[in-house]
Design a protein around this nucleic acid. Structure first.
Lengths: 164, 164
DNA sequence: GACATATACTTGTTATAACAACTGTTGTTT
DNA sequence: AAACAACAGTTGTTATAACAAGTATATGTC
């Protein structure tokens, strides 16, 4: 029993921020897991669905969206956006082509199949998400959304002022 | 312009739950990214650090903790816990051995190096985490922690009643 | 208008996560 | 006590994420 293990001196009680980040990660994982389970019916992952939804909502003109913008909305790094979108091209959900005005840009847009797909999944997923938070009151959900949003746009990360 | 793309009919305005989950994932990613950056000084990832901290706090007797318990605390699946802990054995931060009473379980415990490591990183990481949420008031942080905790322990996932 | 710099994306490599299947041990039922 | 189920970990495979480096185009400057 003469272990040199004399600890508990430095690391104290759990602190607030620690719990917030742990819970945020856990809640996010839980939500992703549920969504992935449901979306697998259509052969989609949550990230793919979200990408489709971004294109659906942000590119309502059908002009195509640059990879960078998609990445910003999805909080996904650009290299991974490229491959994400490539996989979605293979599945026939989107098309991609270079912008004629700025040949550096590649614009992605939904195919009709992609549109149908995201429209099919929308309501079931919305209901699933609602169910996951059904034990919160509306006021709590509103407040949680506000606090999360405030929390994530930290001063050290000022490029967070989304439009409007 | 005769695209068949007549959308916007089905997918409406962003709804509350959607924003909550997106923000939770984003906040979690952001926190993990910051932590990983800082912890790389000691050659640790955030997950490894958290595993060390779990052992430090939950195994204060130094008897070793079963993989399953570690996995529960870290919200990590058991197969990944095995490999996570193996890597940490390779680094000399923990040791693992089979329980003599129940030969199915493998108990992991900190080495002195592991103890020093987690103690070294503790305060810097705590400060980094505090800084990330410094623009929230104490009341907001308390409320955010409460709401996140309530949100993640959903009825569909009742095995969430941590001890005390 | 050549040259450096910035931009938008792609490619390569390595690490980690997800999911299923498997091994060995313990508990239960009869 | 033999058979079966439950349990705790491990192993295998595939998909995805992280990080660094590379390519092609555009922009600014002298």
């Amino acid at each position: 029993m003469s272990k040199s293990q004399n600890r508990k001196a430095i690391i104290g009680k759990p602190y607030l921020e620690e719990g917030i980040f742990m819970s945020a990660v856990a809640l996010g994982d839980q939500a992703l897991s549920e969504s992935n389970k449901l979306l697998s019916i259509w052969g989609m992952t949550a990230l793919q669905y979200n990408a489709l939804k971004v294109l659906y909502v942000e590119d309502s003109q059908g002009e195509g969206l640059p990879s960078m913008e998609i990445g910003q909305r999805l909080y996904t790094r650009v290299p991974d956006v490229t491959r994400l979108l490539e996989r979605m091209v293979d599945k026939g959900w989107i098309t991609r082509e270079r912008d004629v005005e700025n040949k550096r840009v590649v614009r992605s847009k939904l195919t009709d199949i992609g549109i149908q797909l995201v429209e099919s999944a929308y309501l079931p997923l919305k209901e699933s998400e609602s169910k996951q938070l059904a034990h919160l009151t509306d006021a709590e959900k509103t407040e949680l959304a506000r606090l999360l949003n405030k929390a994530k746009s930290s001063p050290s990360n000022p490029a967070d002022n989304k439009d409007s």
